[in-house]
Design a protein around this nucleic acid. Sequence first.
DNA 1: TATTGTTATACTCTATAACTATA
DNA 2: TATAGTTATAGAGTATAACAATA
Lengths: 150, 150
Amino acid sequence: MPPASDLTAHTGYWLRMVSNAVSQDFARKVADEGVTVAEWSFMRALYDADAMAPSALAEKMGMTKGAISKLADRLLGKGLITRADNPGDKRAHTLSLTGAGRSKVPILAALADKNDAEYFGILPTEEREMLHRLLRTLADRRGLKTIPVD
Amino acid sequence: MPPASDLTAHTGYWLRMVSNAVSQDFARKVADEGVTVAEWSFMRALYDADAMAPSALAEKMGMTKGAISKLADRLLGKGLITRADNPGDKRAHTLSLTGAGRSKVPILAALADKNDAEYFGILPTEEREMLHRLLRTLADRRGLKTIPVD
DNA sequence: TATTGTTATACTCTATAACTATA
DNA sequence: TATAGTTATAGAGTATAACAATA
C-alpha cells in the first residue's frame, strides 16, 4: 500500500477542525436570534455604514451579486433591512438596517464575544495572543480581506 | 448607536478567515482530481480500513447516515468505492475503495501536503509548530475528534 | 420493537449565467 | 455596449424524518 500522509500531520486539518467547531457553535447561538452567520456578517457590515449598495456588500463579503440578492431577500422578509431606490441612478439600490435590525446587532455582537471567550479563554493570555497574532500574520501574508461567511 | 464589538477583535474571525482560505484552495486542488473535500475525507478514512460500515463512517466523520449514503452514491458513480452486502447481517453493508480509489488516495494526500506547505511554510518553523500545538490543544480541550469535512 | 441503511424533503451557501432596466 | 441588480438553475453540504428490510 503506497504511503498516504497522515491527515493529522497537517496544520490545515486541525485548523479546519477547530474553526468548524467554533463556527458551528456560533451558528447555533445566532440561530436562537433567528439569523444565520452569513446574515449576521451582512448586518454587521451595514451597521458601520448608513446604507450600502448590493455591489459594495458583495465586494466586502467576497460574495457574488446573486448571493447578496438572495441574502437581502431573506433579511427583508425578516424585517431586518430595507431596500430603497437610488435617486441618482435608477439601476442602483441601497440597503439599510431597519430599527429592528440595528438593535439586534449589539445582541449578536455580544454572542460573538461570548463564543470567542468560550473557545479561546481556556488558553493562557499569552498563548491566546500568540494564536491571534499568528492567524493575523497568515491572513496578511495571503492578502485575505473578505469577511468570512461560512 | 449602541456599541457593537469590532468583528476583527475576535480570534474566531481570523481563524475562520484563514481556515476558509486554506480549505478553498485545497478544494480547488482536489477538484482537479475530480473529488470534493468531503469525498477525499471519506476515501482517506477507508484507506486505513479494508472495509467499513456506513454507520462507522458516519460516526468517524461526524455526519448523519443520510449524508453518508449520498456521499457513497457519488463515489460509487465515480467508480472510486464499492458497496457490498454483509453476509452476517443482511441489513448491513460494507464500503471499500476500488483499485482506482485506492491509487488516488496518495495523490490526494500529496496535494494536502502541498497545500499545507503553501499556507504555513511562510511561518518560521518555531511559529508554525506553535500554531500547530495551539490548535491541537484547543481541539483536545474541546474533545473534538470527527474529521472536518467542509 | 430496535437497528441498518436508503430515500425524501428542505434549507443554506456557492457559482454561473440569463435576464431586465438603466446608463 | 456596459453596468446594477435580480432571478434561475444547479451542485454540495447539513438535518430531520419517513421508510423498507432485517434482527
